[in-house]
Computed example of a mutant assay.
Amino acid sequence: MTAKTAPVTRDLVPTPAGDARITLHPAAAPRAVLALGHGAGGGIEARDLAALAAGLPARGVSVALVEQPWRVAGRKVAPAPRTLDTGWTPVAERLAAPGLPLVVGGRSAGARVACRTGAATGAVGVVALAFPLHPPGKPERSRASELLGSGLPTLVVQGATDPFGRPAEFPELPASHELVALEYGNHGFEVPKRAPVGPEELLELIVSAVGDWVLRLL
């Protein structure tokens, strides 16, 4: 039997960088909370974030989609990493308060924020979707240290053609980290029209991989 879900709620959280916004997709009987931040070029409507919010509450994982203060304020350009961390940390601390295990994560820039701040916010793990290992075409500018230094069990979900870092480009990961390499998918987890896997199937793979991994942490 599929678990029931509760109504979606929205809440503003004051931070030193301005108000952030939580859109909570709660499980009826939650076993954990997964907080997900968006990337620098988009918001919580990203296809992978929306799919996780729709699919995981039925498995007992509440999903909190977090909009950074710059997005809430209507600005077009993301601020510096330090400001992103400042706008994220109070939100993660608020979500950790009820006592449920908290897993933090996000896509692209949101994944970097979660890796940098997760251990300090009391999270038990990190989910890194489309981790931007390096700027496109500049592998020498690696951000692997953020991923390797998360200090928490970390799941990376990476598309095969992601210009910010293909799965084969990632360094050897510690035993606490896991990399799910998708056979298809770019940085936005879009697939070519002629691919044998359709966009919905790819999203189902992402939801299954993240759900299974989060539940194994508990």
Rank of each mutant, 00 (worst) to 15 (best):
A3D: 15
A6Y: 08
T9R: 01
D11C: 14
L12K: 15
V13A: 08
P14M: 12
G18I: 01
P26A: 11
A27F: 09
A28F: 07
A28I: 04
A29V: 14
P30A: 08
G37S: 14
H38L: 09
A40C: 07
G43D: 12
G43Q: 10
L49N: 00
A50Q: 04
A51I: 12
L52H: 00
A54E: 09
V61W: 05
V63H: 01
V66N: 03
W70A: 03
G74P: 06
G74K: 00
A78G: 09
P79W: 11
A80T: 09
T83Y: 00
D85W: 06
G87N: 05
W88Y: 14
P90Q: 06
P98S: 11
G99R: 08
P101M: 10
V104Y: 03
G110V: 11
T117N: 07
T117I: 13
V126G: 05
A128W: 02
P136L: 11
K138A: 07
S145C: 03
L147W: 07
L152K: 07
L155G: 00
V157S: 02
G159L: 08
E169Q: 13
L173P: 04
A175N: 00
S176Q: 13
E178R: 15
E178V: 12
L182I: 07
E183L: 14
H187E: 04
V191S: 01
K193Q: 13
V197Y: 08
G198S: 06
P199A: 12
L203C: 02
E204N: 10
I206Y: 00
S208G: 05
V210M: 10
R216A: 13
